[in-house]
Design a protein around this nucleic acid. Structure first.
Lengths: 144, 144
DNA sequence: TTTTTATTTTAGGTCTGCCTAAATGGCGGT
DNA sequence: ACCGCCATTTAGGCAGACCTAAAATAAAAA
C-alpha cells in the first residue's frame, strides 16, 4: 500500500520510454526483442512486461508482432520522454556526463513530477539563453 | 544478473541512509521502529532489512535493541549521505522544491556514482561562490 | 513479583520483475 | 508442401521488498 497504487510503478516506465523512442524510429508495432535489447533484458521479460502494459491499457499487443502505445500509453510515455530529455540535457550539458542517455533513461521514471517539471523549466531557460546570445559559441552552458 | 550482484542494490540504500542520519541524532543502536517510521514502512519490514544488512556485514544488530553501522556500513552510508546532501541542496536551492529532503533521500541510492560526484562538485562550487560574495545576502543561488 | 503495555520478531503471503529452458508460431528456401 | 531457423511465448522458478497477524520479549506499572 506504499506506492500510488495505480498502474505503472517503477520499472514499467522504462518499457514505456523504450517503446516511445522505438516508435519514433520505425513503424509502430515494436517487437519484444527490440525492447529486450534496448533495456538489456531477456526477450521473455520483455514479452511479459508488454503483456502487463497491454493489460493496463497502455499498449495494444499483437502476438508475435509487437506492441503499439495506446493514447493513454503515449501520454504517459510522452511525459516520461520530456523528463528523459531534460535529465539527459542536464547530465550532459551541466554535469558533463558521458552516459547521460542511459542515466536519464533509468531515472526518468523515478523522479517526482515536481522535479521533472522544474528541470524542464531549467532546460527551456537554457535554450532561451542560447538563442539570444547567438554568435555560434560552442557551449554556453558549460564553460571550457 | 543485471545488477552489480553485490550487497546493497536499490532499497537497502534508503535504510543505510536512515540509519546514518539517525545515528547522528541519538546514540547508535537505532531501533527498527525508528527506521520504519522515517522510511514509512512496517516495523516488520524494518526488522527484516536490518537483519539483511547485518548479514551483509553493514550493521551489527542487537535483537530487541536496534542496529549500529559497522565501518563498512558507515562508509557506504557516508557516500550515500554526501549524495543526499548534494541532491537536497540541488532540489532546494536550484529547483526550489519543498520536498527536497524526501526526494533526495529516495534518489540518493539510485543515481550513479558519476552523477553523485559531479553534483557534489556543483555544490562545493556554489558554497565557494557564496563564501566570496559575503555580504550576508539571502540566497545567491536562487534569485527572490 | 505479577501484570500490562509497547515494541520487536516470526510466520505466512503477495506482487513485481527477472531468468532459463522448453514449447510454439511464422516464414523463407528448396 | 515441407523443413529449419529465428523470434516469440509459455512454464516454472527465484529473489527482493513489502504487508498483516500472531508470537515473543523487555520494560514499566501495579
Amino acid at each position: 500500500m506504499a506506492d500510488v497504487g495505480e498502474s505503472g510503478s517503477t520499472r514499467t516506465a522504462r518499457y514505456l520510454l523504450a517503446l516511445y523512442i522505438a516508435e519514433h524510429r520505425t513503424s509502430p508495432p515494436v517487437a519484444p526483442g527490440r525492447v529486450a535489447e534496448t533495456l538489456d533484458r531477456s526477450p521473455a521479460a520483455a514479452t511479459e512486461m508488454l503483456q502487463r502494459l497491454a493489460a493496463d491499457g497502455l499498449v495494444v499487443r499483437e502476438p508475435y508482432e509487437g506492441a503499439t502505445l495506446t493514447d493513454a500509453g503515449r501520454a504517459r510515455a510522452s511525459d516520461l520522454h520530456e523528463t528523459y530529455v531534460a535529465l539527459s540535457w542536464f547530465f550532459r550539458d551541466v554535469l558533463g556526463l558521458d552516459e547521460h542517455e542511459r542515466e536519464a533513461m533509468e531515472l526518468a521514471g523515478l523522479v517526482s513530477p515536481a522535479v521533472a517539471e522544474r528541470l524542464a523549466h531549467l532546460l527551456f531557460e537554457d535554450l532561451d539563453g542560447e538563442a539570444r546570445s547567438d554568435d555560434s559559441d560552442a557551449s554556453p552552458t558549460r564553460e571550457p
